[in-house]
Design a protein around this nucleic acid. Sequence first.
DNA 1: AACATATTAAACAGTG
DNA 2: TCACTGTTTAATATGT
Length: 616
Amino acid sequence: MHSIVKALQWVKGAGASEALQVARQFLLQQASGLSSPGSNDSKQSAVQVPVSVAMMSPQMLTPQQMQQILSPPQLQALLQQQQALMLQQLQEYYKKQQEQLHLQLLTQQQAGKQQPKEALGNKQLAFQQQLLQMQQLQQQHLLNLQRQGLVSLQPSQASGPLQTLPQAAVCPTDLPQLWKGEGAPGQPAEDSVKQEGLDLTGSATTATSFAAPPKVSPPLSHHTLPNGQPTVLTPRRDSSSHEETPGSHPLYGHGECKWPGCETLCEDLGQFIKHLNTEHALDDRSTAQCRVQMQVVQQLEIQLAKESERLQAMMAHLHMRPSEPKPFSQPVTVSAADSFPDGLVHPPTSAAAPVTPLRPPGLSSASLHSGGPARRRSSDKFCSPISSELAQNHEFYKNADVRPPFTYASLIRQAILETPDRQLTLNEIYNWFTRMFAYFRRNTATWKNAVRHNLSLHKCFVRVENVKGAVWTVDEREYQKRRPPKMTGSPTLVKNMISGLSYGALNASYQAALAESSFPLLNSPGMLNPGSASSLLPLSHDDVGASVEPLPSNGSSSPPRLSPPQYSHQVQVKEEPAEAEEDRRPGPALGPPNPSTAGPPEDRDLEEELPGEELS
DNA sequence: AACATATTAAACAGTG
DNA sequence: TCACTGTTTAATATGT
């Protein structure tokens, strides 16, 4: 999954699915010939297309749909292409190997006729060893590909030794157990060696558990992923470990080995490499672990496919505009301009955008499940970059009934800061919520209460009396104080923090002081690239933290009108409270995406305004 | 385990 | 009286 980011770079290619099919069939055939004595099974399974592939096939998703369906399909497309590439590589590689082996086998068999049995036995032994070696090489190759993020894993590892695993129950949560279980001596080493060797090739013959038709729930359906789980795959970890900068390694991060279940501390890369070569060499344990990882990835693929399908259905149900261009960075193009004048708009062509757009899908999978509490801090970590996050996934949240991964406080702040005057009435805040998030078009009672609660609770929200009522403003200092950032050195965290502060780029006079104009590049796609970000960042982690702390000192940090301590009387409150201008406006008749389906008795807000501007 | 924070629910008061 | 706004408390969940 973490390969997605990388894969985005070469996503534009076409015809990958065909290549994928061909490649897969090739592998299947090969596999059946190599290791599967029963040709029946192999043929059967060869006909059946693993669900993840089927989901990605053009029959299921038209190009238009692919574009429309926001992120999950995008991920699918990526995975698809990854698979295609990988399979092609493997195809060539394996083909060579097998030709060689077959040749050798033939010669050996011929020789065997003329030789004593013992000699034949020896030769066969040697051959077996070579076969084993080849298989290991194959596996290592796969592993390498996976390390490089090129492989999302093909659905061909399901059989063989993997059956010894809690296969159907593999989910990220199980990882630790899996790693320990698999890597542990519980599985006889020799056995696993034998099997795993055949696994790569032979498993394709019996990928039964993944051969279910697309419409059928995959095996893991009965144990949905925990809500927060997708975060395992979030860019945070990916970006840090995935980018292959010269001084880094995908399996090395934060001073420790990222090999599943390892976490050995390594002071530097050299030490880590040494550790990697010694502890995670190509042995049965490592390969077994690799296998498990493959299966995990595969399960995630299936899960992704499921969620994508669900999303499609949801969007179809909501009558989402099919033609809406949803390339790989979220659409922000037109609509973001109006809602996010912060210049954080990232053109869809941006090759660096991949980092964040990953969130919506992940979130969607999390939130969609959650009738209940599926929010919380998981999002909070990322709540600071809300503006950029929101800008990029603007359309997504607007249209998909997905709970935004931001805290109420973040959202309220965002709503307020988006306005020129940086002040909103309660009702305007409500409206912003409903306007910006499909999710908040429902459950109005709860979240409105929560909004009010947050406004009252947090000191960062300052109520300012007006002639006709009151407006709410944000005391940025308080807001920043509220959550002192813990910069652990994680580039992603730093990036998030910065991008959060980057909102200042938009409200120049006000927040620029806060965020210090040091984040101009936040608007550039480059910042999304962890590698380039780290190199370009003018601020160290400490600086970022400092930008939060030193607030009291800089009088310039707060604009005159918003000087938090006393500005409650200085704020130039709008003369005409919002209700006149935008609020109550029945407005641009922005009916909900599908008014007819808006079953629940929604508040009046709901029908008031909805994403209409963008929908036109 | 303790603590901090977020979410949700609810009670209550003030106001138009 | 009612709806809205705003404050406050409490329970719960989650992350550090």
